[in-house]
Structures are given as structure tokens and as C-alpha cells.
Design a protein around this nucleic acid. Structure first.
Length: 215
DNA sequence: ACCCAGGGTCATA
DNA sequence: TATGACCATGGG
């Protein structure tokens, strides 16, 4: 029986061999990463891109500017990303944390995670996206794709708690920031393949890794 | 017309 | 602790 570490590393190799380096997260600045992390909650990335583009036309992308913006105006700009009233509030909650604590980058990983989770609207996955892709901390992000993929392969229980799964994988891999960055990006890119969105996945080179819910 | 998307909060039992 | 309602747009 192969160890979890060996199986995960093999999975990484297969994905990397097919898709190559992804250079994530798609954003120009760390703050834009954080913004995207909130806006993409339960939302297709294409809609988030529209929202961010709208916002860039109205304002500089920094915490002070978005805090100064009337919430209604912010909400209207991010409308395409869905839940726009809710997300306008969440974005400003995050901005408030960033604006009145300029030393966040000096905090240890766990402290920083605690600060992020303290923001209403930032849950475990959004916090980990921010930790990994904005603050370059070694965190393995668990999202719906990751659960679906690992669940489908039969490596995890469907109902394992977020923290338990994250720590199980991090303990097994003991990877660095760059490795976790690439790994999560590959899982998402793989899940977005057209063939992985079909009920049956026959032409996928990695058919056994297809993450469509019904497979 | 339906389903889903790079989730999270809050009220209730 | 564990469900369920709610948030809302856009593409397939």
C-alpha cells in the first residue's frame, strides 16, 4: 500500500506533466489576489474578472480606496460576480483589517490565518487562498475541486472536515509554498477541462482523475 | 427551465 | 455539531 505522500506526489506529477506550470494566482498585485479570493466565493472566475475590471475603472485597487468608496457604488461595480451586496461588505471588512494593521505580513502563519478568519466573510478556503497566493505562506488549499477529485479517487471521506483534510495533506506532503501553489492551481485547471464537465469522461487523458460530480 | 460556479454566515434544533 | 435558508450573476 502506497503512502498518501507517494500517491499525492504521483498525482502532482501526472497533472504537471499534462498542464505544465500555471503561474497562479491570476492577478497583478497581492491585494488583487485577496479581492479575487473573496469575489470568487461560489462563483465562476469569468464573472470575477468582469467585476474586477469594473472596479479598476472606478478606483485604484488598494484597501484605503475601497474603504472610502460608498458601499452601494462598490456593490454596483462588482455586480457580475454575484452576491454583490454581501461581497461589497466582505471586501470592505477585509480592507479594514488591512488598513488598520499594516504589519500583517510580519505575522507567523497561524497568527495571520487567525486574523484573516476573524474577518466576517472570510472562511477557511478564502483565508488559505490569501495565505498562499497573496502572502506566500506554505498552505495546501482545499476547495470543492480538491474534495471532489480526492473523493472520486477514493482517498478521502466525502465528509472530512476542512481542517482535518488540510492538515492530513500538509503532514503527508510537507511541501513548500511553491509546491502547494502549483498543486492547487493544477487541480483547478484540471477540473475546468471541458471533458471533466461531462457526465462521462472518455477522451480525457486523465480520465481516472476526472472530477465531474457524477463520475 | 435547470444546474453550477475557485464559499460563508446565521438561525435553529 | 449539524442541517437549512440565504446571498445573485452569467454561462452551459
Amino acid at each position: 500500500m502506497k503512502s498518501l505522500k507517494a500517491r499525492l506526489e504521483e498525482l502532482f506529477e501526472q497533472l504537471f506533466a499534462h498542464y505544465g506550470a500555471q503561474n497562479w494566482w491570476p492577478a497583478e498585485t497581492p491585494f488583487e489576489v485577496m479581492l479575487g479570493a473573496v469575489l470568487t466565493q461560489n462563483t465562476a472566475w469569468a464573472n470575477v474578472e468582469k467585476a474586477i475590471l469594473n472596479l479598476k475603472k472606478l478606483s485604484e485597487l488598494n484597501p484605503q480606496a475601497l474603504l472610502a468608496m460608498p458601499r452601494e457604488l462598490l456593490a454596483e461595480a462588482i455586480r457580475p460576480s454575484g452576491y454583490f451586496n454581501l461581497k461589497a461588505e466582505r471586501v470592505q471588512n477585509l480592507c479594514a483589517l488591512l488598513a488598520d494593521n499594516r504589519e500583517l505580513h510580519k505575522l507567523a502563519d497561524l497568527e495571520l490565518r487567525g486574523q484573516l478568519l476573524g474577518v466576517t466573510g472570510i472562511g477557511p478556503e478564502t483565508a488559505d487562498d490569501i495565505l498562499l497566493y497573496a502572502f506566500q505562506r506554505p498552505v495546501f488549499v482545499i476547495d470543492a475541486y480538491t474534495r471532489r477529485l480526492l473523493g472520486r479517487i477514493g482517498w478521502i471521506d466525502a465528509d472530512i472536515a476542512y481542517e482535518d483534510l488540510r492538515q492530513t495533506i500538509e503532514q503527508a506532503l510537507a511541501g513548500d509554498t511553491e509546491y502547494y501553489n502549483e498543486f492547487h492551481a493544477l487541480i483547478v485547471i484540471h477540473a475546468k477541462r471541458v471533458c471533466c464537465k461531462q457526465p462521462r469522461c472518455s477522451d480525457c487523458h486523465l480520465s481516472t482523475l476526472c472530477s465531474y460530480p457524477g463520475n
